[in-house]
Design a protein around this nucleic acid. Sequence first.
DNA 1: GTAGACGTTCCAGTGCGGGGGAAGGTCAAG
DNA 2: CTTGACCTTCCCCCGCACTGGAACGTCTAC
Lengths: 132, 132
Amino acid sequence: MRIGELAATAGVTTKTIRYYESAGVLPAPARQASGYREYDHRAVDRLAFVKAAQAAGLTLAEIVDVVSARESAGAPCAHVAAVLEQHAHDLERRIAELTTLLTQVRQLSARAKTLHPDQCTPAQVCHLIPTA
Amino acid sequence: MRIGELAATAGVTTKTIRYYESAGVLPAPARQASGYREYDHRAVDRLAFVKAAQAAGLTLAEIVDVVSARESAGAPCAHVAAVLEQHAHDLERRIAELTTLLTQVRQLSARAKTLHPDQCTPAQVCHLIPTA
DNA sequence: GTAGACGTTCCAGTGCGGGGGAAGGTCAAG
DNA sequence: CTTGACCTTCCCCCGCACTGGAACGTCTAC
């Protein structure tokens, strides 16, 4: 199949497929005499994997890591597991940061409802956000 | 004070100060005869505000919005409050998304510990990440 | 033979928040 | 007078994951 059909099947654009090839998540396919890229079902599987891995929060660079480990050393399950574990940690940290931030923003919003505008000084820009 | 001293006082780089000026969060300062930028204490206050607003999760564009409202229409508290409220909503949504993601990643990690590598098929790249 | 649907390469841009470095002007100290 | 620190403007660069467009080649149908 050619790139357009692959794109339609996988639900991505042809641009994305070429980009993935340049990024290393898709292997360079065979070429027809015309120079057109020629794909088989493995490319469909690979694109499905990429989408699933992205949905799990992996970056393209991490996916490259995983698929290249797959190609060079067989089943990369341990590698994938490590990447996932790292990602879980990152997510937890990020969620904690955002939760702290949300608390702060909520406090500022609460202050917005109890203070009067004439309590602003020019140095503060707005009393809602403490500069200290 | 000149830009270097302001930068040291505020804890940013001179690059950042010029960038902020171009972005509209800092007003264009007076110039010395030499062409050097000449700042006073208000610039220090403003930079402190920008840092505080960034810590509260506002983007530079939103800060521009707030400070220009301040300069054109006096105390922008209601405006700031609306921006904060919007931000709180965004944060809640983002936290919910990340929490969902974390659950998925945790499930995959759990599977990694119960499955064997020889259950991988090439089409899957790795059984840890379902492609269906 | 020609239209148009598809393919190719390469270059450039998006949004965010700056950072790097060149080429040159200014200022204080020794 | 020269050195070195500081300042100026200018334009390009980063990561991230693409997307858009130009200019050109190829294939199929009428």
